[in-house]
Computed example of a mutant assay.
Amino acid sequence: MSFERDHLAGLVAAHGPVIRVVVAEVAGSAPREVGASVTVWAEGQDGTIGGGTLEYDAVATARAMLADGRDRATRAIALGPDMGQCCGGRVRLLWERFEAGTLPEDPVFCRPVADAAPSLKVQKIEARARAQGTAPAPALVDGWLVEPITTPPAPVWIWGAGHVGRALVGSLLPLPGLALTWVDTGPERFPETIPDGVTALPAPDIAAATRLAPPGAHHIVMTYSHAFDQAICDGLLARGFSSAGLIGSATKWARFRKRLQQMGHAPAEIDRIRCPIGDKGLGKHPAAIALGVAADIVRDVARAGESAAAGDEGDRDERRLSGD
């Protein structure tokens, strides 16, 4: 479990202020673990802390808090005596109000459940998260609830399941923070076993599949057909993308660039597609090409993250200047 900041931000954008109810502590048998949460707004809710009566009561409390303006509450609950549930354990719940300007920004969200200064242990958890990117498990530590903040994985679409495509999937699969979608014209193009964590998408009209990709995805185009490659590039330029690379030579790209411009795409947008890709110095073996391309993707994802972080910082500065 973790604190899904972007998901919570989406709920706030859609519904206004919300109350998030999180399981802060568990002793004995309980419906859910520490970090399980339900987010509540006036007309709905998202997520679950389980337990039937426990959740019903928690949601009712959250809606009362939305109505009366309270920002925070905590309660220790004995599931048997207090809720009439067969679980024999105890839980502590924490209710917290969130709005657009109050969402946490650090890689780990640490706050007191009761009045207590952060202990040395809590301070070390925060320092490790900032310096090393270490994500602690959700836990109540010396009176402070600690939750790692997660962001959605970066979508990476690989177009083509040939030798280089297969090598590229193998290179990217162990890397954290990526969501791999693998596209080709039919199921026979893929290996018999698709690795866990990879979404295979057979698409007879492969260019039309560009409409399924998120506009912020990263793409590598390497099909068995130049015509398919060009059609995919056309589709991506219409759809939008965070980054895109095309396998091929400078000659191939010069030809594609001219044709894409004739199809109505702006030169500046066309030039966002990188071709050739990889590192020629590594050689032409599929695994060597894949290593160079994987390095390109990692850099692209990092740049996109830095750009988004800079945008968030600018938004926060603007809110501070405007007094919001």
Rank of each mutant, 00 (worst) to 15 (best):
F228C: 13
G35T: 11
L236T: 05
L11H: 11
V23C: 08
P112K: 08
G10P: 09
D6L: 14
P187E: 13
Q230M: 12
R316G: 02
G101S: 12
W157P: 01
Q132S: 11
F190V: 05
F3D: 04
V22L: 03
K252F: 08
R316M: 05
A73W: 01
P31V: 06
G101V: 01
G248M: 11
P191E: 03
G186F: 00
D312I: 07
S29W: 02
A213P: 09
A127V: 03
L120S: 12
T74S: 14
D115Y: 00
A117F: 01
G278W: 11
T39Q: 01
T223C: 09
R75C: 11
S2E: 12
T48V: 03
L201W: 13
P31W: 09
K284E: 15
A14C: 03
G314M: 13
I149G: 00
E188C: 00
R32H: 05
A254Q: 14
G264Q: 11
S119I: 04
M1Y: 02
H15D: 11
G143Q: 03
I77P: 00
I125A: 06
F256I: 09
V108D: 04
L11K: 02
I232S: 01
A24V: 06
A254I: 02
D279A: 10
S171G: 00
F256A: 08
A250V: 01
A131D: 12
L282W: 01
S307K: 04
I206P: 00
Q262R: 15
V12N: 03
F3K: 02
D68V: 10
D106L: 11
L172D: 05
G177F: 10
V59G: 04
S243H: 10
F190C: 10
G52F: 07
H15R: 03
A78I: 00
A244E: 03
R75V: 01
L168E: 04
R63V: 08
G10H: 04
G314N: 13
A30S: 12
M263N: 10
T193R: 15
P176L: 12
G143E: 11
L103R: 07
G133D: 05
G84L: 13
A227G: 10
L291K: 04
L236G: 05
E25Y: 07
M222W: 07
P202T: 12
V21G: 08
P31D: 03
G88Y: 08
L260M: 13
